[in-house]
Structure formats: C-alpha cells, structure tokens
Amino acid sequence: MGAYLPRWFMKPQHVNPQKALLIHKDLAATRSYATHWGTYQPAAESLKQTREDLTSAKRCAAKDKDEQLKALAIGETKTIIRD
C-alpha cells in the first residue's frame, strides 16, 4: 500500500488504501499489515496521505475495526505468533 497516485499509472503495480481494505476483507483476514509506504515519495501522494487515506477508507467501511488493517509506522517491526 503506497505509491498509488496517479491511479491510472500506478494501479497495475500498487494498491491504494481503499483497495488494501477490500483485499483484506476479500481474504477474510483477521489482521493485515500495510507495508511499502511512507519511506520515500516515489509517486504523487504525500508521505502522510497514505495514512490519512487509510483512515478515511476505514470510516467509509463502518464495519471495519481499526486494528484489523494497520499501517505500520516507519521502522516499526511486528512479531506475529501463530496459534
């Protein structure tokens, strides 16, 4: 999720926050972590726009819980323990 603007050019390679949320739901994932965003600006969206667009997409999808699809902070690591 990142480097997604302009959509006409970036759509074949990169997903935007709205599409990432749809992918998360289509897979019936219990949690997803967005990566590949905010480290440098290779496309038209600003570095902070991705997080803002994800927040907006979540608001539009009222049933989504905030913790289900997260955008990790730059440099953040996440340990996932499978049951």
Rank of each mutant, 00 (worst) to 15 (best):
4 Y>S: 01
55 T>A: 15
74 I>E: 10
51 R>V: 13
40 Y>D: 15
13 Q>W: 15
37 W>Y: 10
39 T>F: 13
34 A>Q: 08
73 A>I: 00
44 A>M: 14
57 A>D: 06
36 H>S: 13
38 G>W: 00
78 K>Y: 07
12 P>G: 12
7 R>V: 13
52 E>F: 12
9 F>T: 14
8 W>D: 14
48 K>L: 09
47 L>F: 00
82 R>W: 12
50 T>W: 01
30 T>P: 01
7 R>P: 02
73 A>F: 01
43 A>V: 09
56 S>T: 11
39 T>V: 11
20 A>L: 06
28 A>H: 15
79 T>K: 10
8 W>T: 13
79 T>I: 11
45 E>I: 04
25 K>N: 15
65 K>S: 10
45 E>R: 01
5 L>K: 14
33 Y>V: 15
75 G>L: 06
76 E>Y: 02
30 T>C: 10
60 C>Q: 11
13 Q>C: 11
32 S>D: 05
59 R>S: 13
60 C>A: 10
70 K>I: 02
69 L>G: 00
12 P>S: 08
15 V>D: 07
45 E>Q: 11
58 K>Q: 03
69 L>S: 03
56 S>L: 14
56 S>A: 11
37 W>V: 13
37 W>T: 14
47 L>T: 03
56 S>K: 09
51 R>T: 09
55 T>H: 09
33 Y>Q: 08
68 Q>W: 08
55 T>Y: 09
52 E>V: 12
74 I>Y: 07
1 M>T: 12
62 A>Y: 13
37 W>R: 09
81 I>A: 13
63 K>C: 05
10 M>P: 03
58 K>C: 00
24 H>I: 11
68 Q>Y: 03
78 K>G: 09
57 A>V: 04
33 Y>M: 08
21 L>E: 01
6 P>Q: 09
9 F>C: 13
7 R>K: 07
76 E>P: 00
18 Q>V: 13
78 K>F: 05
45 E>C: 01
41 Q>D: 04
53 D>T: 07
29 A>K: 03
51 R>A: 15
27 L>H: 06
17 P>S: 02
41 Q>N: 09
62 A>P: 01
58 K>V: 00
8 W>V: 10
40 Y>P: 06
73 A>H: 02
70 K>T: 00
33 Y>K: 07
52 E>G: 11
16 N>W: 02
40 Y>C: 14
37 W>F: 12
25 K>Y: 09
78 K>I: 12
64 D>T: 12
58 K>W: 00
49 Q>Y: 02
38 G>V: 00
23 I>E: 12
